[in-house]
Design a protein around this nucleic acid. Structure first.
Lengths: 347, 347
DNA sequence: TTGAAAGCGTTACCAA
DNA sequence: TTGGTAACGCTTTCAA
């Protein structure tokens, strides 16, 4: 049976207010004798306060929700983002409820998840894996809950990584290493997202502003894996082929690497690679150079903004755009000696 | 201002019970006229029930917690596991609170997170990224909450993947492809975990039972990335070098692949690779063959078990061990023609 | 067809 | 130093 203040009070022979105060740190007001008896009985019963009852009294939930909004049937929340959010929330003993929300469910017909139908949290964090739709914007506004949007490039109430700047920085790193023929390599993206576009735009901008020519490889969706690899191989052995590539997704790396290996091109001696990724434990143990997305800081900042909104009755906040960080690996080096490289026959 | 039943009731001029019943689907008991008025006012006020108040009345939280227990300061929950858990919980409109729990915080001195100090959930899912400690076992038992442990090999109240069987299956796949010299390749693991050991044990068992000789490469922790790669290269060019490797972590793949590429060994023509991973969107777009961990099903099963425990007053449940699934990629093929391969000089 | 009262487990407030 | 009362927002139960 669950223990309550009333139960302890009855057993000890005091009022439940006495118990309440002693157990919530106001014990100095009481006689040591009373205090001891209450504490002992609470311990005996393994008393733990009911946080929902507290929340009702306090008129705030002490809870925030993180919703993964996407085009897909399931959600995806980056571990770094999640950790950043939790780290910041834990400072205030705030709970985090998570759920995913397929955007297809945000239409007049379909029922919303309980999280949005009922009143259960003080604020909302939305993680966007696809573009913002008018429906979801309306949903949030109508809900009246303070909300911060993560990973979506909006002017207000949003936090997102500087993907454009990350791509520019990647090109700069390769340029400083001596590369001029820098390609952009990507298979098909698993979902549509602003960052995927911004990375390419950043690449093109950095290239043209340096007077270099962008060269893009983009595998078509309908091709099989083997066909994609073949196409990649063709692209890598063209005359004027790149000595370095930027890829927007870490999943692209093994493809370009495999294609290069098939041609006998070594990384980084013959081909340098920079990709995008979040900092994580299993990222090839640092084999590849990458632009690290500021996922953890994104989470922390989102929480700070949300807390500000909760305190200041949902006031509009300017968005924050956080920079990527270059992580050195083993996949970037100087370009090969040009003449020999160009003359080399690739089978 | 938040809307409540009482507020609507006052505005319409009925009792709050009337409002409560009409808004919770028992409207047919009332005159259409009353019903309409109440519904209109509720809509106007954007009424949403307070789920904490409901929970208090119902004497259950309608909420479950997922705690990521690990040796590290932060947590790691596999996206598949999380999705499986959410998918199953959403069937009953149950909320999921997540948090991480560094095992160092489970000692008499340090304060526990609110989730464990207070009473906020009906049950607990524990995701273990390290071995179970006596402290955490005691903590859970004392807490008195129904709990299921994920990713830990225990006899009761647990769900975990069959890593041993997965490794056995991986060896079988390579054997059937014709390989006899099958190696085991791993850098240092990011954390200690039963699965890491079980995979190796499964590999050794499958090899010896087939009359083959295990050969292990394991990079030492203190080596730099470049030194690890050098060591891997040495291992791959020994006489009697493997024609296929099993690696327990997907992060190992790029290392063995890179080392092979340095030697001019192609995948899969000269070297086949099978790794372990969970099904995910960005897994090299299917480049590598892997044994897929049943993470999503693990989550679903954990929730089903937990719900059973919650209903049946925390009764002990036998553990469940779920099989891995082979996912075909482009990294497994027949072994190279032996004589030529053996004679070939690798620089 | 509708309502009043009681209670879920807390805590703020006022009184003793 | 201690206790009674009321209230947070909801639903069950009983009564009209």
């Amino acid at each position: 049976m669950r223990s309550t203040l009333a139960l302890i009070a009855r057993n000890v022979g005091v009022s439940s207010m006495t118990v309440s105060r002693i157990l919530s740190g106001k014990g100095h007001l009481y006689r040591p004798e009373t205090r001891e008896k209450v504490l002992a009985e609470a311990r005996r019963q393994q008393y733990r306060p009911n946080s929902f009852a507290k929340a009702i009294r306090a008129r705030q939930f002490g809870t925030v929700a993180l919703i993964a909004a996407s085009d897909m049937e399931f959600g995806w929340i980056s571990p770094g983002l999640q950790n950043g959010i939790l780290a910041e929330l834990n400072k205030n003993d705030t709970h985090l409820i998570i759920n995913y929300l397929p955007l297809s469910r945000v239409t007049p017909g379909r029922p919303l998840p309980r999280l949005l139908r009922e009143w259960s949290v003080d604020g909302l964090l939305l993680n966007h894996m696809s573009a913002l739709t008018p429906e979801i914007t309306a949903l949030i506004r109508e809900g009246g809950l303070p909300a911060i949007r993560c990973n979506v490039r909006e002017d207000t109430d949003a936090v997102y990584p500087d993907d454009f700047g990350g791509a520019v920085a990647a090109v700069e790193i390769l340029r400083k290493a001596g590369h001029k023929r820098i390609g952009y390599f990507t298979l098909h993206p698993p979902f549509a997202h602003f960052s995927y576009i911004d990375r390419y735009d950043g690449y093109v901008r950095a290239m043209t502003e340096s007077g270099l020519t962008p060269q893009l490889f983009r595998a078509e969706l309908k091709l099989s894996l083997a066909e994609q690899e073949l196409a990649a191989t063709e692209w890598l052995k063209r005359a004027g082929r790149p000595t370095a590539v930027v890829t927007p997704l870490s999943g692209d790396v093994s493809s370009v690497f495999a294609a290069a290996a098939k041609l006998g091109l070594r990384v980084p001696e013959d081909l340098s690679i920079i990709t995008f990724d979040e900092d994580r434990l299993d990222h090839g143990h640092g084999r590849f150079d990458y632009m690290a997305l500021p996922t953890e800081e994104l989470g922390r900042e989102a929480v700070r903004m949300l807390q500000e909104k909760i305190e200041q009755s949902n006031k509009l906040l300017p968005a924050r755009c956080l920079p990527c960080t270059y992580r050195c690996g083993l996949s970037v080096g100087p370009p090969p000696i040009t003449k020999r490289f160009n003359r080399r026959k690739l089978s």
